[in-house]
């Protein structure tokens, strides 16, 4: 069980397209405590996904600093970031992004191919991850044999299997119905409360945001509002 603190100081990100500078994040400051479940809201283009990518080491800031645990991301090379991601970050995407020709278990096993471990250890880790997300009976199913909710559970198991410090979720319920969304959010809550994972989740849905401890509102690349949420417990969420 591990978690990491996240700290962004004066983070700026400017994209360039055909010589035109497009500022996306403009001096953003943010601190997320280890083991916190924070949701990120804001209109399209406010910089939510960009911030998620910077914290996940998928992109580098134009200015400022991003620290996750002990890692100062803006100082790391692409190779170092890639290696760091594989061990410290779990990603969950809106459209699940599972490999369609692999089974649920094989999809979960994918990130472990980067680790030096025995096949037996890999199998054990995959089984544990699938048990946590409640899909022990779907290990040999391919994505097209699973419902949307089940696919997202597999994606969560894939994010979880390396025991990362931070889980970054980009609209994980954006493609799911209300009931399935609730199940997925309950599962994320579980990962936060039971396994102590630091979770940062982008969402447009206030109901989904209510599952976090804090909601950060972004507007035009700056932090507009930082709201502490009344915590919805796992039991309450399940009810």
């Amino acid at each position: 069980m591990s978690a990491a603190e996240i700290e962004c100081i004066d983070v700026r990100k400017v994209y360039r397209k055909d010589r035109i500078a497009i500022p996306v994040l403009d001096g953003l400051n943010l601190r997320i405590a280890a083991g916190e479940f924070v949701t990120l809201m804001g209109p399209s283009g406010s910089g939510k996904s960009t911030l998620l990518h910077l914290i996940g080491g998928l992109d580098s800031p134009t200015g400022g600093s991003v620290r996750v645990g002990d890692a100062q991301l803006e100082r790391m090379s692409e190779r170092e970031l890639t290696a760091w991601r594989s061990r410290h970050v779990g990603f969950i995407f809106q459209m699940y992004h599972l490999v369609p020709v692999l089974t649920a278990a094989q999809n979960v096993e994918l990130p472990l191919l980067l680790f030096k471990m025995s096949a037996a250890e890999r199998r054990e880790r995959v089984a544990t991850a699938l048990k946590i997300v409640g899909l022990s009976d779907r290990t040999d199913h391919r994505p097209n044999q699973l419902s949307g909710g089940q696919e997202q559970r597999v994606a969560i198991a894939r994010a979880l299997v390396t025991d990362p410090d931070v889980i970054l979720a980009d609209e994980p319920t954006g493609d799911l119905d209300a009931r399935t969304s609730e199940e997925i959010l309950t599962l994320l809550n579980l990962l936060n409360t039971e396994f102590g994972k630091t979770i940062l989740m982008v969402t447009h849905d206030p109901k989904a945001a209510a599952h976090g401890q804090r909601t950060i509102h972004l507007e035009k690349g700056v932090l507009e509002r930082d709201e502490v949420m009344p915590r919805k417990t796992v039991a309450a969420a399940s009810a």
Binding site: T82, A83, S86, F91, M95, L114
Partner: peptide
């Protein structure tokens, strides 16, 4: 393309 992006996101190095 997107799937390969996921491979990279979860930590597959460029060479892999």
């Amino acid at each position: 393309t997107r799937e390969l992006g996921v491979f990279k996101a979860i930590g597959f190095p460029r060479l892999r």
